[in-house]
Amino acid sequence: MKAFGLLVLFVGAAVAKSTRGNAAYTYTYSETGLGGFYQLFTDYAPDLLNFNFDNAIKSVYQTGMWLYYENVQYNQQSGKVYWVHGIEISVDFPQDNWNMCSSLKFVGSPDYMNVDTWTVYEGPIFTGSEYYGEADAGTLGSITDQGSSIILTGTSPWTFYDGTNWTGASMCVYPNTDQDVGSAGQVLNFGIYPNVSERPRYNRQQHRLGTKGVLVRERGQCRTTQGRVQRQERSLGSPGTLGTCNRMDVW
Protein backbone atom coordinates (compact mmCIF):
# COMPACT_ATOMS: atom_id res chain seq x y z
CA MET A 1 0.00 0.00 0.00
CA LYS A 2 1.22 3.51 -0.84
CA ALA A 3 -0.24 6.82 0.30
CA PHE A 4 1.85 9.95 -0.11
CA GLY A 5 1.80 13.61 0.73
CA LEU A 6 4.49 16.02 -0.40
CA LEU A 7 7.64 13.93 0.05
CA VAL A 8 9.67 12.90 -3.00
CA LEU A 9 11.91 9.85 -2.72
CA PHE A 10 14.25 8.51 -5.40
CA VAL A 11 14.40 4.78 -6.05
CA GLY A 12 15.21 2.64 -9.06
CA ALA A 13 12.68 2.30 -11.87
CA ALA A 14 11.56 -1.10 -13.14
CA VAL A 15 10.46 -2.15 -16.62
CA ALA A 16 6.98 -3.62 -16.85
CA LYS A 17 4.56 -4.68 -19.57
CA SER A 18 1.47 -2.53 -19.97
CA THR A 19 -1.80 -4.07 -18.78
CA ARG A 20 -5.17 -3.45 -20.43
CA GLY A 21 -8.25 -2.36 -18.50
CA ASN A 22 -9.04 -1.07 -15.00
CA ALA A 23 -6.11 1.31 -15.22
CA ALA A 24 -7.77 4.05 -13.15
CA TYR A 25 -10.66 3.77 -10.72
CA THR A 26 -11.34 4.78 -7.16
CA TYR A 27 -14.11 3.80 -4.78
CA THR A 28 -14.43 6.63 -2.27
CA TYR A 29 -16.05 6.00 1.12
CA SER A 30 -17.61 8.27 3.70
CA GLU A 31 -16.07 6.38 6.65
CA THR A 32 -12.68 4.86 7.39
CA GLY A 33 -12.15 1.17 6.72
CA LEU A 34 -14.21 1.43 3.52
CA GLY A 35 -17.35 2.00 5.54
CA GLY A 36 -20.43 4.15 5.10
CA PHE A 37 -21.67 5.41 1.74
CA TYR A 38 -19.48 5.08 -1.34
CA GLN A 39 -19.08 6.51 -4.83
CA LEU A 40 -17.14 5.04 -7.78
CA PHE A 41 -15.07 7.34 -10.00
CA THR A 42 -13.37 6.38 -13.26
CA ASP A 43 -12.88 9.88 -14.67
CA TYR A 44 -12.07 13.43 -13.63
CA ALA A 45 -14.53 15.02 -11.19
CA PRO A 46 -13.99 18.80 -10.94
CA ASP A 47 -16.80 19.29 -8.40
CA LEU A 48 -17.87 16.49 -6.05
CA LEU A 49 -21.02 18.38 -5.15
CA ASN A 50 -22.38 17.14 -8.47
CA PHE A 51 -22.04 13.59 -7.10
CA ASN A 52 -23.43 14.42 -3.66
CA PHE A 53 -20.01 13.50 -2.27
CA ASP A 54 -18.44 16.86 -1.47
CA ASN A 55 -16.31 16.90 1.70
CA ALA A 56 -17.28 13.29 2.36
CA ILE A 57 -14.21 11.08 1.74
CA LYS A 58 -12.41 9.30 4.56
CA SER A 59 -11.11 6.17 2.81
CA VAL A 60 -10.61 4.78 -0.71
CA TYR A 61 -10.15 1.52 -2.58
CA GLN A 62 -8.40 2.19 -5.86
CA THR A 63 -6.03 1.30 -8.67
CA GLY A 64 -3.74 3.86 -10.28
CA MET A 65 -2.71 7.24 -8.95
CA TRP A 66 -5.45 9.62 -7.82
CA LEU A 67 -5.18 13.22 -6.65
CA TYR A 68 -7.65 14.48 -4.04
CA TYR A 69 -8.12 18.26 -3.79
CA GLU A 70 -9.56 20.42 -1.05
CA ASN A 71 -11.25 22.82 -3.50
CA VAL A 72 -13.27 22.43 -6.69
CA GLN A 73 -11.59 22.59 -10.10
CA TYR A 74 -8.44 20.95 -8.75
CA ASN A 75 -7.47 23.81 -6.44
CA GLN A 76 -7.70 26.77 -8.75
CA GLN A 77 -7.85 28.37 -5.32
CA SER A 78 -5.13 27.40 -2.87
CA GLY A 79 -5.83 24.31 -0.79
CA LYS A 80 -4.67 20.89 0.34
CA VAL A 81 -3.76 18.07 -2.05
CA TYR A 82 -3.58 14.43 -0.94
CA TRP A 83 -2.57 11.67 -3.32
CA VAL A 84 -2.65 7.90 -3.26
CA HIS A 85 -1.23 5.37 -5.71
CA GLY A 86 -1.20 1.61 -5.88
CA ILE A 87 -2.92 -1.44 -7.33
CA GLU A 88 -6.14 -2.64 -5.69
CA ILE A 89 -5.29 -0.95 -2.41
CA SER A 90 -7.32 0.30 0.52
CA VAL A 91 -6.26 3.52 2.27
CA ASP A 92 -7.66 5.45 5.21
CA PHE A 93 -7.01 9.16 4.79
CA PRO A 94 -5.08 10.85 7.61
CA GLN A 95 -7.50 12.46 10.03
CA ASP A 96 -6.54 16.01 8.99
CA ASN A 97 -7.66 15.09 5.45
CA TRP A 98 -11.02 13.62 6.41
CA ASN A 99 -13.94 15.24 4.59
CA MET A 100 -11.67 17.76 2.86
CA CYS A 101 -11.98 16.61 -0.78
CA SER A 102 -14.03 18.65 -3.26
CA SER A 103 -12.51 17.48 -6.56
CA LEU A 104 -10.41 14.55 -7.75
CA LYS A 105 -8.71 13.08 -10.83
CA PHE A 106 -6.41 10.28 -11.91
CA VAL A 107 -2.90 10.42 -13.37
CA GLY A 108 -1.71 8.86 -16.63
CA SER A 109 -3.58 6.70 -19.11
CA PRO A 110 -7.21 5.75 -18.35
CA ASP A 111 -6.94 2.57 -20.45
CA TYR A 112 -3.53 1.02 -19.81
CA MET A 113 -1.40 0.58 -16.74
CA ASN A 114 2.20 1.82 -16.78
CA VAL A 115 2.06 3.47 -20.20
CA ASP A 116 4.78 6.07 -20.82
CA THR A 117 2.98 9.37 -20.14
CA TRP A 118 3.72 12.84 -18.82
CA THR A 119 1.42 15.41 -17.28
CA VAL A 120 2.46 19.00 -16.63
CA TYR A 121 0.38 20.96 -14.13
CA GLU A 122 -0.18 24.70 -14.06
CA GLY A 123 0.45 25.07 -10.34
CA PRO A 124 2.75 23.39 -7.82
CA ILE A 125 1.59 20.17 -6.19
CA PHE A 126 -0.41 19.20 -9.33
CA THR A 127 -2.99 21.99 -9.09
CA GLY A 128 -4.90 24.00 -11.68
CA SER A 129 -5.10 23.13 -15.37
CA GLU A 130 -2.89 20.48 -16.92
CA TYR A 131 -1.39 19.32 -20.20
CA TYR A 132 -1.15 15.58 -20.84
CA GLY A 133 0.84 13.65 -23.43
CA GLU A 134 2.18 10.30 -24.49
CA ALA A 135 4.58 11.73 -27.11
CA ASP A 136 6.55 14.93 -27.64
CA ALA A 137 5.01 18.40 -27.84
CA GLY A 138 6.50 21.71 -28.93
CA THR A 139 4.28 23.71 -26.55
CA LEU A 140 2.01 23.06 -23.60
CA GLY A 141 -1.08 24.73 -25.00
CA SER A 142 -2.86 27.11 -22.65
CA ILE A 143 -0.36 26.48 -19.83
CA THR A 144 2.77 27.15 -21.92
CA ASP A 145 5.23 29.01 -19.68
CA GLN A 146 3.15 28.20 -16.61
CA GLY A 147 4.04 24.58 -15.79
CA SER A 148 5.04 24.15 -12.16
CA SER A 149 4.80 20.40 -11.40
CA ILE A 150 5.10 17.12 -13.30
CA ILE A 151 4.04 13.49 -12.95
CA LEU A 152 5.44 10.74 -15.21
CA THR A 153 4.17 7.18 -15.59
CA GLY A 154 5.78 4.19 -17.30
CA THR A 155 9.45 3.37 -17.64
CA SER A 156 11.00 6.05 -19.88
CA PRO A 157 12.51 9.45 -19.04
CA TRP A 158 11.55 12.68 -20.80
CA THR A 159 13.41 15.90 -21.53
CA PHE A 160 11.76 19.19 -20.60
CA TYR A 161 12.76 22.56 -22.08
CA ASP A 162 12.18 26.11 -20.86
CA GLY A 163 11.60 27.33 -24.44
CA THR A 164 8.99 26.34 -26.99
CA ASN A 165 9.79 23.88 -29.80
CA TRP A 166 12.56 22.20 -27.78
CA THR A 167 14.72 25.28 -27.29
CA GLY A 168 16.50 26.73 -24.30
CA ALA A 169 17.80 25.01 -21.19
CA SER A 170 16.60 21.48 -20.48
CA MET A 171 16.42 18.80 -17.84
CA CYS A 172 15.88 15.05 -18.01
CA VAL A 173 13.21 13.68 -15.67
CA TYR A 174 12.78 10.00 -14.80
CA PRO A 175 9.77 7.94 -13.63
CA ASN A 176 11.73 6.51 -10.74
CA THR A 177 10.48 8.11 -7.53
CA ASP A 178 7.79 5.52 -6.69
CA GLN A 179 6.82 1.99 -7.70
CA ASP A 180 3.83 -0.25 -6.94
CA VAL A 181 3.55 -4.00 -7.55
CA GLY A 182 0.18 -5.75 -7.58
CA SER A 183 -0.66 -9.23 -6.34
CA ALA A 184 -0.66 -10.55 -9.91
CA GLY A 185 2.68 -8.96 -10.72
CA GLN A 186 1.37 -5.75 -12.31
CA VAL A 187 3.75 -2.82 -11.97
CA LEU A 188 3.20 0.93 -11.80
CA ASN A 189 6.15 3.33 -11.99
CA PHE A 190 5.91 7.04 -11.25
CA GLY A 191 8.03 10.15 -11.34
CA ILE A 192 6.34 12.53 -8.90
CA TYR A 193 7.68 16.09 -8.93
CA PRO A 194 5.49 18.52 -6.92
CA ASN A 195 7.60 21.58 -7.75
CA VAL A 196 9.92 21.53 -10.77
CA SER A 197 11.51 24.84 -9.78
CA GLU A 198 13.20 22.91 -6.99
CA ARG A 199 14.41 20.11 -9.27
CA PRO A 200 18.12 20.45 -10.25
CA ARG A 201 18.90 20.52 -13.96
CA TYR A 202 20.86 17.71 -15.56
CA ASN A 203 22.63 20.16 -17.90
CA ARG A 204 24.11 21.79 -14.79
CA GLN A 205 22.35 25.10 -15.31
CA GLN A 206 20.88 26.34 -12.07
CA HIS A 207 18.19 28.72 -13.28
CA ARG A 208 14.52 28.30 -12.43
CA LEU A 209 12.64 26.04 -14.84
CA GLY A 210 9.59 27.47 -16.57
CA THR A 211 8.24 24.39 -18.33
CA LYS A 212 7.17 25.09 -21.93
CA GLY A 213 8.14 22.25 -24.24
CA VAL A 214 8.23 18.51 -23.77
CA LEU A 215 10.47 16.19 -25.76
CA VAL A 216 9.89 12.50 -26.33
CA ARG A 217 12.24 9.89 -24.88
CA GLU A 218 14.10 7.29 -26.94
CA ARG A 219 14.88 3.92 -25.38
CA GLY A 220 15.63 5.29 -21.97
CA GLN A 221 17.84 8.12 -23.20
CA CYS A 222 16.83 11.76 -23.13
CA ARG A 223 17.21 12.71 -26.79
CA THR A 224 14.98 13.26 -29.79
CA THR A 225 14.02 11.67 -33.08
CA GLN A 226 12.05 13.04 -36.03
CA GLY A 227 8.43 12.26 -36.86
CA ARG A 228 4.81 13.24 -36.29
CA VAL A 229 3.30 13.00 -32.85
CA GLN A 230 0.05 13.57 -31.02
CA ARG A 231 -0.71 15.70 -28.00
CA GLN A 232 -3.72 16.08 -25.76
CA GLU A 233 -4.71 18.83 -23.39
CA ARG A 234 -6.79 18.26 -20.30
CA SER A 235 -8.09 21.38 -18.62
CA LEU A 236 -10.37 21.34 -15.60
CA GLY A 237 -11.66 17.87 -16.34
CA SER A 238 -12.63 18.40 -19.97
CA PRO A 239 -12.17 15.42 -22.33
CA GLY A 240 -9.47 17.35 -24.21
CA THR A 241 -8.70 18.02 -27.84
CA LEU A 242 -6.47 15.94 -30.05
CA GLY A 243 -4.13 17.31 -32.70
CA THR A 244 -0.78 16.78 -34.38
CA CYS A 245 2.46 18.69 -34.51
CA ASN A 246 5.87 18.32 -36.10
CA ARG A 247 8.98 18.10 -34.00
CA MET A 248 12.60 18.85 -34.82
CA ASP A 249 15.66 16.75 -34.25
CA VAL A 250 17.70 18.88 -31.87
CA TRP A 251 19.91 16.20 -30.40
Rank of each mutant, 00 (worst) to 15 (best):
M1W: 00
K2P: 07
K2V: 09
F4W: 04
G5Y: 06
L6G: 10
L7H: 07
L7I: 04
V8W: 05
L9G: 02
L9D: 09
G12L: 09
G12I: 08
A13C: 13
A16H: 11
S18D: 10
G21V: 07
G21Y: 05
N22T: 07
N22H: 10
N22L: 12
Y25R: 07
T26A: 15
Y27C: 11
Y29H: 05
Y29V: 02
E31Y: 05
T32I: 15
L34G: 04
G35T: 14
Y38S: 14
Y38F: 05
Q39P: 00
Q39D: 06
F41Y: 14
A45W: 00
P46W: 01
D54A: 14
D54I: 11
N55W: 00
K58E: 04
V60R: 01
Y61K: 09
W66N: 08
L67K: 06
Y68I: 02
Q73A: 12
N75D: 13
S78T: 13
S78A: 15
G86Y: 07
E88A: 12
D92E: 05
D92T: 04
P94H: 02
Q95C: 02
M100L: 08
M100N: 08
M100T: 08
C101D: 11
C101T: 15
L104D: 06
F106A: 08
F106G: 01
S109M: 13
D111R: 09
N114M: 08
D116Q: 10
W118P: 10
W118R: 05
W118A: 15
S129R: 15
Y132A: 06
G133I: 02
G133L: 11
D136F: 11
L140A: 15
L140Q: 11
G141E: 10
T144Q: 15
D145T: 12
D145S: 14
Q146N: 14
S149N: 08
I150F: 01
I150G: 01
T153W: 07
T153S: 14
T155E: 10
D162T: 03
T164C: 02
N165D: 09
N165W: 06
W166A: 03
G168Y: 04
G168T: 07
A169D: 05
A169K: 03
M171P: 00
N176R: 09
T177C: 07
D180L: 04
D180P: 04
V181E: 13
S183V: 14
A184T: 15
Q186W: 07
V187F: 05
L188D: 01
I192F: 05
Y193K: 07
Y202K: 06
Q205Y: 01
L209R: 01
T211W: 03
K212G: 00
V214C: 10
V216D: 09
R217A: 05
E218Y: 10
R219Q: 09
R219D: 08
T224W: 01
T225G: 12
Q230E: 12
Q230C: 06
R231A: 05
Q232Y: 10
L236A: 11
L236N: 13
L236G: 13
G240A: 12
T241H: 11
L242V: 07
G243M: 00
W251Q: 08
W251S: 14
W251Y: 14
W251H: 11
